[in-house]
Amino acid sequence: MPRFAANLSMLFTEVPFLDRFERAAKAGFTAVEFLFPYAFATADIRARLDANGLQLVLHNLPAGDWDAGERGIACIPGREAEFCAGVAQAIEVGTALGVPRLNCLAGKMPAGADEAVLRATFVANLKFAAAELHRAGLQLLIEPINRYDIPGFFLNRTEQAIAILDEVGVPNAFVQYDIYHAQRTEGEIAATLQKHLARIGHVQLADNPGRNEPGSGELNWPFLFAHLDRIGYQGHIGCEYKPANGTEAGLGWRQKLAQ
């Protein structure tokens, strides 16, 4: 059976963030991930991880003004100093929390922006971030996100992400492959996973349509989980979905589908 990590930004959201760690452990998870740790004391998160025997496998770099609708700043010219400061903050916090990898959200394309300039900005920022993370012993991830959910998001296809990583040209930068986003944008999930497995540093899931738990939509999860085992994926699979009827009520898919 694959190793699953509970995404605490999506699961157990009926309780305060710091209480979700205990809920995840009681639900049988041994690993967690979440969007951002920066609104909480690092020591408090570390204490919840330790008290519940949980491994933190992923969080994101700071991504601009999230409440105002920003979804990353890495591709946006003129925000480089803010991006670099965010990298330093993420490394400091992530190291204290024991996270092995950090995800960099590219951001949404400003109206009228030149895509070549956005790409050059993104590549330059990634080179800086990857070098800083390498010194800290961390992996850097970039995540293609579908433009139905986030219109104008710069990075939206796997091949685009691979080409950008080729340009960045560092050994510690990988794709965060979210099956839900990939299904909405390009399909070919099994073939893409197999083709690019060596370039994929983390996998996330949700079913489609609806972004709910596996088994609620069109994807063949028993096949995909077995496929990930067959091709040798060794990492966790982040459960980044919206529970249809409460988190615990919808967790039966782990035993039903991951056989």
Rank of each mutant, 00 (worst) to 15 (best):
T13Y: 07
F29D: 03
A31P: 04
A39T: 07
A39I: 00
A39M: 05
F40H: 11
A47S: 10
N52H: 01
L54V: 06
Q55Y: 15
L61W: 06
P62N: 07
P62H: 09
A63I: 01
D67C: 11
R71D: 06
P77T: 13
A81N: 10
E82D: 13
A88H: 14
I91A: 04
G94C: 02
L97R: 13
V99H: 04
G112P: 05
F122W: 01
A124W: 03
K127M: 14
K127E: 15
E132R: 11
L133Q: 14
A136P: 08
G137I: 00
Q139H: 14
L141K: 03
E143W: 02
G152T: 06
F153K: 03
F154A: 09
A161M: 02
D166A: 10
D166I: 04
V175K: 00
V175L: 00
V175S: 01
E186Q: 13
E188Q: 15
Q194Y: 00
K195A: 13
L197Q: 05
H202F: 14
R211N: 13
N212A: 10
A226C: 08
I231T: 02
Y233C: 12
G235M: 14
G235Y: 07
C239Q: 02
Y241P: 09
P243V: 02
A244E: 10
G246P: 08
E248C: 02
G250F: 07
Q255S: 15
A258V: 09
Q259V: 14
